[in-house]
């Protein structure tokens, strides 16, 4: 049997629905149709009355989830694309994210964001907007890079007492496969060393982990050993694991598919520069998408976001210093 990243997300939701009567799923086309990406396939049939189509109203979808959470439920909201979550942005960052701090009443909602670029997606079906959510206090932002993490982190997200923005990468949905679902996993908040190395630390997350691993394989042929850190969660950020890796390698490259201004890569560089300056043998660098909307045509798209080729090139520049 082999399971995809998308299967893992479906299985995690089935598991949560089966184990916890407080869980329900609400989103556009998630009911009988099974979701735009089939992440809720057959769940409406298996769990009658608990997997429900919503109107195209991202604001009201999240607001409803917050109200249900106050009443003790554990809603999962599916945004059809991460890009559309900006319509529900206010409810996520101002309603859900402030509730616990203002009132002491927790807000356990999980908002699933199918995000990131796929060829042909274009400007409004490709965005990586994890950083704007991570910017707000009161939100946990997860970015699983593997089938195993997609499963275990989604289950843990539903169990957490806080609003979770769960960024699941569309490019990984069908590309990644695993033999079985994990029975144990690293907890949320811990980064993972995806590949060990001594010459350079590449810190990245989600689909870019795989580009970084491919770059590392290529660079090993040139005699360089690259360490790849998979953040898993961008908020909280596992600064300890990053710092320990930089202590071993002395060099840092941060890679993100999101836009360059601010964001996760900038945050990591800021932390390493201020808290681990003495660990660095070279100026820390970062590689992001270009500062334009995400292009539609594959010729432009592959040049817009970082790839194994551009990661390897950025790494060489640091390694040659």
């Amino acid at each position: 049997m082999s399971l995809t990243y998308l299967d893992a997300i479906r299985e995690a939701q089935a598991h949560a629905l089966r184990d916890d009567p407080r869980v329900f799923i609400y989103g556009q086309d998630v009911g009988d149709f099974g979701g735009a990406f089939k992440a809720t396939k057959n769940l409406a049939k298996e769990f009658p009355g608990r997997v429900l189509d919503s109107p195209i109203s991202e604001d009201a979808m999240v607001g409803l989830a917050v109200g249900a959470a106050i009443e003790g439920m554990r809603p999962i909201i599916e945004m059809q694309f991460a890009d559309f979550s900006t319509v529900g942005f206010n409810q996520i960052v101002n309603q859900a994210a402030t509730l616990f701090w203002r009132t002491g009443v927790s807000c356990p909602i999980t908002v699933r964001l199918p995000f990131g670029g796929t060829s042909g997606g274009g400007p409004f079906h490709s965005q990586c907007i994890e950083a704007i959510y991570a910017h707000y206090p009161g939100v946990i932002v997860l970015t699983p890079a593997t089938v195993e993490d997609a499963y275990s982190m989604l289950l843990e997200a539903v169990a957490l007492d806080d609003p979770v923005v769960f960024c699941e990468h569309k490019f990984l949905y069908r590309h990644l496969k695993a033999e079985k679902l994990p029975s144990e996993a690293l907890p949320i908040g811990k980064a993972r060393i995806a590949r060990e190395g001594r010459d350079l630390t590449v810190v990245t997350y989600s689909a870019m982990v795989h580009e970084a691993l491919e770059a590392a394989t290529e660079l090993s042929g040139e005699g360089w050993e690259i360490e790849v850190v998979d953040l898993r969660s961008v908020k909280p950020l596992d600064t300890d694991t990053i710092m320990a890796s930089v202590a071993r390698t002395g060099k840092l490259l941060c890679v993100g598919e999101a836009w360059p201004w601010g964001g996760v890569t900038a945050e990591i560089i800021a932390r390493v520069a201020s808290e681990g300056y003495g660990l660095l043998d070279a100026a820390p660098q970062r590689l992001n998408a270009k500062d334009t909307p995400v292009p539609y045509h594959p010729n432009l798209w592959t040049a817009h976001r970082p790839t194994a080729v551009s990661v390897a090139e950025a790494a060489r520049k640091i390694l040659r210093q």
């Binding site: 607001g63 109200g67 106050i70 009443e71 206010n90 009132t103």
Partner: peptide, 29 residues
Amino acid sequence: PRDGLLPMISHLGAMISVVNGMLFAHRLK
């Protein structure tokens, strides 16, 4: 909130769907 009295945020109209969610949860429960 636990007593059914919601503390408004400043964004107008934003509390309505939260009320909906509480009523929706009543139905599920």
